[in-house]
């Protein structure tokens, strides 16, 4: 776990090449505690790559990524999670054959370090069950707790996805297009849901939908051609002429 008041996530001069193609160059980025940052940019700007670098899917070609005090670039996913970084997936990845309760239970188990257990007795298991219940209640998914995940509606599965991401108790939450494939109304509900679930936590997300971005983020970084073009508050970004250029003559996506 990271500690202290320092930044939660720091990227220093991070670059990523796939063969001869340079996807990201000289990315510098700092997320302070409690900040909610959105990464936006036109298609092909390198958002997904950056996201995958931070979440540990790829290792950067050069540069340093720190979570709190510790270097995390190139670290395997499970260790990243144990250090306090958790991510959601753009294509919903829930355990379809299990109940909603079991889905979240697995995440809470991991937070308590119970990754190899054969027995389910002792105080810690009562805590795990209790915290699972609490989280489900807090997410207002109580009525769905016993439903098999694959039978849930799409937006319910997305909500479950967010719940699992939060349930490992991370310092930093990465959300990959949390409202992709949703209708206007569903997306608006999702924004409120994410806001409630991630209250007081640090958030980094990639999102296309500007309503969602402005609804959730308190700072925005704009990525263009593999570099960070601008970082600032939503209002500042909206008025930045460079950003409007990058987005094809000002039409915001």
């Amino acid at each position: 776990m990271t500690s202290g008041q320092g930044p939660v996530l720091v990227l220093e001069d991070v670059a990523k090449r796939f063969g001869p193609i340079e996807v990201l160059t000289g990315i510098n980025l700092t997320l302070s505690r409690g900040e909610k940052r959105a990464l936006i940019g036109p298609n092909g700007a390198g958002k997904s790559t950056l996201f995958n670098l931070v979440s540990g899917r790829f290792a950067p070609s050069s540069g340093v990524i720190r979570l709190g005090e510790k270097r995390i670039d190139g670290m395997p996913a499970h260790q990243l999670n144990r250090m306090g970084l958790s991510r959601s997936f753009q294509i919903t990845q829930v355990f379809g054959g299990m109940s909603l309760y079991e889905n979240i239970y697995m995440a809470v188990m991991s937070r308590h370090g119970k990754r190899w257990s054969l027995l389910r007795s002792g105080r810690v298991w009562r805590d795990i069950a209790e915290q699972t219940r609490e989280l489900i209640d807090y997410a207002q998914l109580t009525s769905l707790a016993d439903r098999q995940a694959s039978t849930l509606a799409y937006s319910e599965q997305r909500a479950l996805e967010i719940c699992m991401t939060v349930a490992t108790g991370p310092d930093l939450i990465l959300l990959d297009e949390p409202t992709s494939g949703m209708s206007r109304v569903e997306a608006a509900n999702m924004v409120a849901f994410i806001g409630r679930m991630t209250e007081g936590r640090t958030l980094l997300m990639v999102e296309h939908d500007m309503d969602v971005v402005f609804g959730l983020a308190d700072t925005i970084s704009v990525l263009s051609q593999g570099q960070i073009l601008a970082t600032g508050t939503p209002a500042a970004i909206r008025d930045d002429p460079r950003v409007q250029d990058a987005y094809l003559g000002g039409s915001a996506h």
Binding site: A77, Q79, L80, R82, Q93, G97, M98, M106, R115
Partner: peptide, 15 residues
């Protein structure tokens, strides 16, 4: 869980 969504399990902190 590994059978269903291995990557998800990994990103929940399981090796």
């Amino acid at each position: 869980g590994i059978r269903e969504q291995e990557e998800r399990v990994r990103f929940l902190g399981y090796d």
